[in-house]
């Protein structure tokens, strides 16, 4: 069953079309990847889904309901959480307070009776940044801040989690742990939609991948299908003469060696 449906969404800024009739679905309980070259409109899609950007035309459905015109905070309350590509951590609060504030917002008045800081510690522990708890959020490394945004989003117990380039700034081991966490989350019923440039990560954790180019979905399928799709090759490496795509596909299969 699809949890999220993006239907024929168009976003125009002035004369430039950032998203051009994009249509895709995210299946409940899956980890879905949204990939594509720079400027393909991935972040704009996220903004449309979370309500930060109103589409020029088209619809967004969440859990069967049309939320195209729903306010940002209502979508969040229905269960859409996200992280940001350009960090939006609360810089003047500590790492622990960042998560605490998310719990405060999520729980509303009920939260007044929240017993202790158990939840906060647990969330920080889960994403693996408990050691930074007392640091100010604007003084931690990028990768850590991304994990903090993840912890903050998880505090609101989202049903759909949108992650915008979550692994940039993480090292190899952290990326691996992060991938495992995503799979675990999906298993618990938190569907994940992720924009990501780390192909190893995308290929290893995603159930399905949508490829966006010039604002349109040019391919969709399992990692194995995407890997050999010539359209995807072309989108990533540029327009090229016939025949070269196959060569690249081969080299793609071979390359697993490079660390960041």
């Amino acid at each position: 069953m699809s949890l999220l449906q993006v239907e024929d969404v168009v976003v125009q800024f002035g004369g430039v079309t950032a998203v051009n009739h994009a249509t895709f679905e995210v299946v409940a309980g899956s980890v879905t990847g949204l990939i594509g070259p720079n400027g393909a409109g991935k972040t704009t899609c996220f903004n449309v889904i979370t309500g930060l950007q109103r589409p020029t035309s088209g619809h967004v459905r969440f859990d069967g309901r049309d939320i195209t015109r729903t306010a940002v905070h209502r979508r969040a309350r229905r269960g859409i959480g996200r992280t940001f590509q350009r960090l939006e951590a609360f810089g003047s609060l500590t790492v622990a307070d960042n998560v605490r504030v998310a719990l405060d917002i999520h729980e509303g008045f009920r939260g007044i009776f929240r017993p202790g800081d158990h939840d906060v510690d647990e969330l920080l522990e889960r994403v693996g940044i408990a050691e930074y708890a007392a640091e100010r959020a604007d003084s931690i490394p990028t990768g850590t801040a991304r994990l903090l945004e993840l912890a903050r989003a998880l505090a609101c117990q989202p049903r759909l989690l949108l992650l915008d380039e979550p692994s940039s700034g993480l090292d190899e081991a952290e990326t691996e742990a992060f991938g495992a966490l995503l799979v675990e989350l999906a298993g618990e019923g938190c569907t994940v939609l992720m924009v990501e440039h780390d192909m190893d990560l995308v290929m290893s954790v995603c159930d399905e991948i949508h490829v966006l180019d010039f604002g349109s979905v040019i391919a969709a399928g399992t990692p194995a299908e995407i890997r050999v799709d010539p359209k995807v090759q072309r989108a990533y490496l540029g327009y090229s003469d016939e025949g070269q795509g196959a060569h690249v596909a081969e080299s793609l299969d071979e390359t697993k060696v490079l660390a960041r």
Binding site: G91, G111, R152
Partner: peptide
């Protein structure tokens, strides 16, 4: 308290507060 934290959070990032479910 809680409200103070939320106010500081709102000052730091409106977009993040909105996507966490806060009616600014």
């Amino acid at each position: 308290g809680r409200l103070g934290r939320i106010l500081i959070a709102m000052r730091d990032s409106q977009a993040a507060c909105g996507t966490l479910g806060l009616d600014l």
